[in-house]
Simulated scan of single mutants.
Amino acid sequence: MKIALLDSGIGLLAAAAALHRLRPDADLVLSSDPDGMPWGPRTAEDVTEHALACARAAVETRPDALIVACNTASVHALAALRAELEPAVPVIGTVPAIKPAAAGGGSVAIWATPATTGSAYQRRLIEEFGHGAAVTEVACPGLADAVQYADDAAIDAAIAVAAARTPNDVRAVVLGCTHYELVTERIRTAVQRAGGPAVTLLGSAEAVAAQALRRLGALPEPAAEPSGSLTVLLSGRRSELPASALAYPEGAALGAVRIRLSPSA
């Protein structure tokens, strides 16, 4: 079984690591776009063009499914990706976990990139799934870029700004950008108020990984032999994992997987 993931950068690590935990025998293909990132400031047409380029590079490795491990690409390019690739290659998008976050009511914050915050797409999700909760959209300028380059000072600064915009009584924070899942605990520390309710953080990696297996009719087998390989595509070029990826536990775990560098491997 081979599953490909695409993103502008290393935000795909969280879903890839989740897949590796569920199926250590699966081959993974990580297709990102360092030459064209960030995607957030691009037009919808540009995002679609870059996402299709990443997908086409990944499809050359003949995956059984493709995960769009990027909220921006899921917003703008999912329909185009499915139109081009399905039914031959199932395409699984990433949706912010607004529904489970809002299910408990109370105060909920959605942390997302400035481009996604306030978008018609996110507002529709809030209208459809946010019933019973007081939902606050929190833009996080610079956070995805800081995570991409593992810039600790910039990460802390961006988290501090977003935390200051987050209601003091927040009960749950939805991580609306896959990059943010790599710094979950740092976000939790910033939003947890002294004497306040315990804050739950909800990402999408685990749900997306499980959905990919369901689409393939495969069951989780975390005890399977860790025989899977890793193919890394940087703007279509076969490579090693970027150094910044190894700064995170998810990247370090994937760094131990055998990397395929030969196109014929």
Rank of each mutant, 00 (worst) to 15 (best):
1 M>D: 01
6 L>I: 14
7 D>F: 06
9 G>M: 13
10 I>L: 15
10 I>K: 12
11 G>D: 12
15 A>K: 10
18 A>I: 01
19 L>R: 09
19 L>F: 12
21 R>T: 15
24 P>G: 13
24 P>M: 12
28 L>E: 11
28 L>Y: 13
30 L>H: 13
31 S>T: 05
32 S>L: 11
36 G>V: 10
42 R>F: 04
43 T>R: 03
47 V>T: 06
51 A>H: 06
55 A>L: 04
56 R>V: 07
58 A>G: 05
58 A>F: 08
62 R>F: 02
63 P>Y: 06
63 P>M: 02
64 D>G: 13
65 A>Q: 02
66 L>D: 07
67 I>L: 14
67 I>M: 11
68 V>M: 12
70 C>W: 09
72 T>F: 09
74 S>A: 10
79 A>K: 12
80 A>I: 06
82 R>W: 04
84 E>I: 14
84 E>D: 14
85 L>Y: 11
88 A>W: 06
93 G>K: 10
94 T>C: 15
96 P>L: 06
99 K>P: 08
100 P>W: 03
101 A>V: 07
105 G>F: 07
106 G>M: 00
107 S>W: 04
111 W>L: 11
111 W>K: 10
112 A>P: 05
113 T>S: 12
115 A>P: 00
121 Y>T: 01
121 Y>R: 02
125 L>D: 01
126 I>V: 14
127 E>I: 00
129 F>V: 02
130 G>F: 00
131 H>K: 10
136 T>L: 03
136 T>S: 14
142 G>D: 04
147 V>S: 01
148 Q>M: 02
150 A>L: 01
150 A>N: 06
151 D>H: 06
152 D>S: 07
153 A>Y: 00
156 D>N: 08
157 A>M: 00
160 A>D: 09
169 D>W: 05
173 V>R: 04
174 V>N: 08
175 L>N: 05
175 L>F: 03
176 G>S: 00
176 G>R: 00
180 Y>W: 00
181 E>P: 08
182 L>Q: 09
189 T>C: 00
194 A>Q: 13
195 G>M: 04
198 A>F: 01
198 A>Q: 10
201 L>H: 11
201 L>E: 09
207 A>T: 13
208 V>I: 12
208 V>A: 13
212 A>M: 08
213 L>G: 05
215 R>M: 05
218 A>F: 13
220 P>H: 13
220 P>W: 11
223 A>K: 12
225 E>H: 15
226 P>M: 05
231 T>H: 10
233 L>D: 04
233 L>E: 05
234 L>E: 15
238 R>G: 03
239 S>Y: 13
242 P>K: 04
243 A>E: 15
244 S>W: 08
247 A>I: 06
247 A>T: 10
248 Y>C: 07
248 Y>R: 08
250 E>S: 13
250 E>M: 13
252 A>S: 09
253 A>I: 02
255 G>I: 01
264 S>D: 10
264 S>P: 00
